[in-house]
């Protein structure tokens, strides 16, 4: 067992966990932040994506102890109070979700994607968005409206 201390959605938290505990388990079970999901066991579906120190990572492929000392943002911490993040708003506006299961990971990936492309000044066109979504699987939407949502959010965040 280890005590892990980290910052989650701006709040310092600690918890007693076994060393083998995955970050996603710590978030879901210790912190009751069940918005982060597990959809596969081979690090491919992306339902578990959160941000660690501002970068998208797969919380099913990271131990909680590895994340100790870092700052984690989950889907629950993305909105500013009742003000949705532009990516959240765009997913609703463009019907970028159906069953909602992959959605938290999709949104966290999209935020990271837009932020990175803005930071390095590269263009985020449809082809790039589709390539950037390689690590996120959606079974409902056919990605069409997810792409529209990310395009719109990217424009809104200009």
């Amino acid at each position: 067992m280890a005590t892990v201390t980290l910052t989650v959605n701006g709040k310092k938290v600690s918890g007693e966990v076994e060393d083998r505990t995955l970050l996603v388990q710590f978030l879901r079970e210790n912190l009751n932040l069940t918005g982060t999901h597990v959809g596969c066991d081979t690090s491919q579906c992306g339902a578990c994506v959160v941000h660690m120190d501002g970068k998208a990572i797969k919380s099913c492929t990271t131990l909680a102890v590895q994340a100790a000392g870092s700052a984690i943002t989950t889907i629950e911490g993305l909105a500013d109070g009742t003000q949705l993040h532009p990516v959240q708003a765009a997913f609703r506006e463009h019907h970028g979700l159906q069953c909602g299961f992959c959605t938290p990971g999709m949104i966290m990936t999209a935020v990271d994607m837009i932020n990175r492309h803005k930071a390095n000044g590269s263009k985020l066109d449809e082809k790039t968005i589709r390539a950037e979504l390689e690590g996120n699987i959606c079974r409902c939407t056919g990605y069409h409206n997810i792409v529209r949502a990310i395009e719109a959010a990217n424009a809104a965040m200009a």
Partner: peptide, 9 residues
Amino acid sequence: IGDPAVRHM
């Protein structure tokens, strides 16, 4: 390699 999240780690 992998995907953006994998490349971050």
